[in-house]
Design a protein around this nucleic acid. Structure first.
Lengths: 248, 248
DNA sequence: CGCTTGATTGATTTGAGTCAATCCCAGTGG
DNA sequence: CCACTGGGATTGACTCAAATCAATCAAGCG
């Protein structure tokens, strides 16, 4: 079911650079000077595109470095012995994944493409070496790690304390804001993942996802057609998550 | 209800050093040379002891650095507007917390003592500067961050995919292995946290925690007396979590 | 045009929550 | 030293949100 994939050397590829990448200010190079960005750029691997459902890595694989999604989408997940997947995160263009390998230089979870996907690899050894002379890069990496950790914490709050409909509303708002961040519509978008994956992320059953989408539609909050989502009433959606947001 | 606390200057304290600390090889200095450890040691703050139920930091507080528990215990948590706490982690002696401040130089969650507690602060600015010349420290920090992230991921799997009794069994095994790591009994220990906190960590109701402890006792798996836990049948406890462990 | 796979819908069950009433210490003060 | 008290812990009765089981339904594909 999972397809195979290989990296091809940088020299064989069209020239793509961080500098020219429209996602660079969402991605790791954010905040670096032009000179720094070029230096970082020299070390980045850019594998070719991959199909839907390709496994990028799995537990036990050697940790190469950080992965940055260029197009498409990726899910990272753990599985129980019985097969159920707990999705840890969905990673959209401009977002970074693969940090689970930092502990022991081995990946600890699975990473699989949701769609036709391309990504960059930022080799860890190189990043580490560059950190010696680039305080801004150190800062940027810490920011990134902190961000991932805080995302996981919000996810814990969701799984531990929210009802099924709060979870789905939170999820829709998260996807929406991430589309918006990339300059797309916040109210009309295609979900890159299946109902099964949404259920796995939210810790609920697929059937519940279906029923809740239906119930949201009946309340004129959204219009759903397979993967196409149109948010009709952002206000109501925000209300639904009002009591379950964290305080500060 | 929460009590106040202040730091006192290093000079006013008894000399405590990483070098002489029995926890140093569980803690951040692990793997550093003696010379490196001394250099790190010079920058560590060691506030005095705190009572139970002291707030160490809360969302919005300036991020100072990493915190290492020396004695006692700490919980970190997020709260919903309605007041429910999602406990993100319990931190026992030798363990580090406070990484939630890395994203924006502001803490994002609450940290509160569970008990009479002392801890060290490893100021972030200093750590960052030392990283320029100490590759081993960089490595150690990345290892630590990766470890925290992987703990969060296991916690996500627990909240998303495990039943209440699997969650409690996983919890007991985790506490047990952490006591063992510090050289204490793996089968007989005092829980440092309340039932309420256990429930908040596991995403279940307090009453459910009580009922499950009772049911575990009736199956002769454990003996529970208030906070005193004696694991009578480690095998059965492991069996209970067998299907819900992650694959690799 | 069947076939496969994912999504939806309905009927039923159940694990865990909620509500409410004790219970049991630990700490306080007479 | 012992009665009192308040907060955490336990227990029981009842409820309900979401899971499970079981049919369809719909879409994409060879």
């Amino acid at each position: 079911m999972q397809k195979n994939m290989n990296h091809i050397p940088l020299s064989k590829q069209l020239k793509i650079s961080c500098e020219s990448c429209s996602l660079s200010d969402l991605c790791l190079p954010r905040g670096l000077s032009l000179k720094e960005m070029e230096e970082l750029d020299d070390h980045i691997e850019r594998p070719r595109n991959f199909d839907q459902n390709c496994q990028i890595y799995q537990p036990g694989d050697k940790f190469i470095g950080f992965y940055a999604v260029r197009s498409g989408g990726v899910k990272t997940y753990l599985t129980k012995k019985t097969g159920e997947q707990q999705i840890l995160g969905f990673h959209l263009p401009g977002e970074v994944f693969g940090l689970d390998g930092l502990e022991n230089s081995k990946q600890r979870c699975y990473a699989t493409t949701l769609d036709n996907t391309s990504y960059c690899i930022l080799p860890y050894e190189k990043l580490d070496a560059l950190c010696e002379t680039m305080p801004e890069l150190r800062h940027q990496i810490c920011h990134l790690l902190g961000h991932e950790m805080n995302c996981d914490h919000s996810h814990l709050l969701l799984l531990g304390q929210q009802t099924a409909h709060e979870r789905l509303a939170t999820f829709l708002l998260s996807i929406s804001s991430r589309f918006k961040r990339r300059g797309f519509s916040a109210t009309s978008f295609m979900l890159p993942m299946s109902r099964h994956d949404i259920a796995g992320y939210l810790g609920i059953a697929v059937e519940t996802v279906s029923r809740l989408f239906k119930s949201f539609q009946e309340k004129d909050i959204v219009k759903i057609n397979r993967k196409q989502v149109d948010i009709l009433d952002m206000g109501k959606l925000n209300e639904m998550v009002a009591n379950c947001e964290e305080t500060d």
